[in-house]
Design a protein around this nucleic acid. Sequence first.
DNA 1: TCCGTATCTGCAAACGTTTGCATAAAGAAT
DNA 2: ATTCTTTATGCAAACGTTTGCAGATACGGA
Lengths: 347, 347
Amino acid sequence: MSARSEKTIVDIAEELGLSVSTVSRALNDHPNISAKTKEKVKKMARKLGYRPNAMAAGLRNNKSKTIGLIIPRISMFFPAAITTVVQNKLQEYGYHLIICQSNDSLEQEQELVNTLYSARVDGLAVSATLSTTDFSHFDIFKQHNIPVVFFDRTPKDYQAKVIKGDDFLGGYTATEHLIEQGCRDIVHISGPLTCNLYKERLAGYKDALSKHKLPYKKPRVFFHELTRENALATAEKIFAQQPYPDGVFATNDTTAITILEYCRKQGIRVPEDVKIVGYSNDPRTEIVTPSITSVDQFSATMGERVVAALMDLIQNRHPNSYRHPQEIVPIQLIKRESSVGSPKKKK
Amino acid sequence: MSARSEKTIVDIAEELGLSVSTVSRALNDHPNISAKTKEKVKKMARKLGYRPNAMAAGLRNNKSKTIGLIIPRISMFFPAAITTVVQNKLQEYGYHLIICQSNDSLEQEQELVNTLYSARVDGLAVSATLSTTDFSHFDIFKQHNIPVVFFDRTPKDYQAKVIKGDDFLGGYTATEHLIEQGCRDIVHISGPLTCNLYKERLAGYKDALSKHKLPYKKPRVFFHELTRENALATAEKIFAQQPYPDGVFATNDTTAITILEYCRKQGIRVPEDVKIVGYSNDPRTEIVTPSITSVDQFSATMGERVVAALMDLIQNRHPNSYRHPQEIVPIQLIKRESSVGSPKKKK
DNA sequence: TCCGTATCTGCAAACGTTTGCATAAAGAAT
DNA sequence: ATTCTTTATGCAAACGTTTGCAGATACGGA
């Protein structure tokens, strides 16, 4: 008895002696329907406990009012921060968000693209896998003219809307800051270069070095996925022999934090013996002792821009939209204890 | 030209001179279809770039292969941790996850329930608002026999599947631990009692006190939303006059961390002058100095149980499923520097 | 009285699937 | 040859909406 009570607009129509089309229009506030009728219909809808069936409407309209989001994992600070605002913003626009994690697996990402297409999402927001260099699995969306917006981890040569942080400037600013604080031998811990943003941060790092007439030394640069374990291994390498570097620029806060912990454990003083800068301004950088200088990427702005771009593309769905230039979100260096103060004096 | 290429099973059927029903069955590996035909159909599907339309299938089958999730906010550690595993687990089962944030607003929660019902999700997982005491807005789901699983912030008298941490034991264990470490005057910072789990943690706190013949003193207990700002205000009250307490049990790690920061700033030594215990085992408790003792709630287990319950309820959809007892996920006290060692000696 | 206009409502098709039932084909048994 | 199975396929309805077009009603003006 309870389970069979799926009320539809047909029920409303019958109850009221109206046609389904009138009911449908009344519920959608179509101008051709009189105020009285609308009132009657809505009242009856409430009375019957009617709930629209979004799938039926979606099928008819060929739109789902749903956006798909693919990120490496929800548990990482930066994508999570963006997700929060994307979700809230979309909610305002009356859109749902289907969130999927690729777990940094290209294979999973490809699969997700397909199933999200099957769900007929009206748009897609993507921060790609570390190893995604070929983006052709997104072609289906292009072919069907469904907006795709990449953010943070974005493609280089794939024609699509892109919203990214100013990674070059981030790398440059972080490095220059260390130099200004007196560092002359700066380690750079980068992610794998298959991922664009690491390339650009590295370029910024190099540029800052050369502008300040410091040599770029290959052994001072590390490339690996920026996990805690890897960071630990790198820390050991870095501090294995004297003289160790006087600055570390990590392109990720997890790494920066891990390095800091290692230093503390080894009695290496931060910032006196070595200065540290991280990336993303993860809240954890603020509560650690000493607090860590980091490059803020304005996750809120980025999230808002992603939604704005999606809504824009959805409204004017013409191929030209894909030619919009990529948007660069600014960055800001947040200076903290790990890199400032205390004149440098190595033990 | 690109946009009109929405291939359907009708196209496949025409191309092959078969009927749509045969094509549909072939694609779904129906036993009545010969192997040859299946092969032919699938090949053609690939060739045409056919993608099933989940909305159409969902409309026909009355199931969306989608689960709705409502949490206060994604940016909070505990719900986020659960979300991660729920999402990954559901992905394995071939289900999507629509994630929504109530932002701790009852009104938004009610609205979300409705729109998720409209999306015809096959199930709902909910961690309620702080202020949700009346759960009747979930009735629609009950009426239509769609599974709802509450976790963490769960209802007390609303008949539904519930998966929660052992909050009483958590409160008890944390408090007893402080007592065992020598604390005799323990502040308890609780969330608003409209939310059940705080009631239970409080009960555990009281029980531990009385078991150890310590008095329960009203002024030592605070109730408010556990934000950073509120925690700061409370910290000021707590340490305003001598003698201040020798232990603080915060039911939230953000609060615990804030108290710790306050103490450091004021020169109050942790754990020598005051010992601190938090709740949820947020990773931040580990990297702060001193690291903070906290009650782990096994987010992974909880997430897995939520999915297991949902899948179970979806498979055997009979009203009895709602009578299953609530499941209690164990807790574990993770002892860290903020509460152990250093013999207590007040200045 | 008739027509024109404005306002409201209804008919029926369409969206892309799935599925109960009927039917066709092909072989096996008589 | 006829009947009976077995196996494979097709027909058509259904899921709950939306919407172009046609039709109905009411009103005022001539």
